[in-house]
Amino acid sequence: MKRVIVSIDGAGKIYHLRGLGRKMSVAALSDFTLDIFEGEILGLLGLNGAGKTTVMKLLTGLIFPTSGKVSVFGLDPREPRAKNSIGFLPELPYFPPHNTPYGALRYYGLLSGMSGSAIAAALPVVMEKVGLAPHAAKKISEFSKGMLQRLGLAQAVLHSPELLVLDEPVSGLDPLAIHDMRALISGMQAEGKTIFLSSHSISELEKICDRVIIMAGGHKTLSVERKNWETAPGALESLFVEAVRR
């Protein structure tokens, strides 16, 4: 039995929006339950607005659950030890354009509590791993979308976390870049990392994930393992359509 490293138990999240003289509440997540097992690649599939990013932000301590419980490695996601064990790649990560990749990674390494010498040792390895070594001398303003996404992955793995949380890692990438990103993610799993990624692209999750959770309207509607969608008529797509329309 594999170790459960993330446990989301009945979590809910309500966003309160304030307008001119009025207040609106939006339930982005309701009674959401999820376990992530060590070493797996778990996909989170849903349409835009399904609540995928909300789940990711709950895991990384960027937002707090309105109800239910979230634990990462048995800790509250806000705890420093929990955060140190996670590497997060947000959708379309932003880096200051005047900076160099080394400069940006050095900063995030320091924030992760790494020492200067540890960062100096890790930087060339990580840059090589994500395929950015030939572009190390460039400014970030010169980077393409694919290169920015690689840099985002680099900052997520720099401090050697056990869990990678990737929000739409192939969003906006060309087919070659998607292929390279897929290879990187598989490589990370081979190193023993657990990967949790979200996407609204069924084909991408099909190719890489061991298990997929389907979300709709802030709820978990289906959890399906690889062996199940590989044998299902219509594969993951038909399961998704059925789950979303339910």
Binding site: T60, L62, R81, K83, N84, I86, F88, P93, G113, Q155
Partner: peptide, 10 residues
């Protein structure tokens, strides 16, 4: 959203 990269860290 650069702040995500900051506060997802300790």
């Amino acid at each position: 959203k650069a702040i995500y990269l900051v506060f997802s860290r300790p």
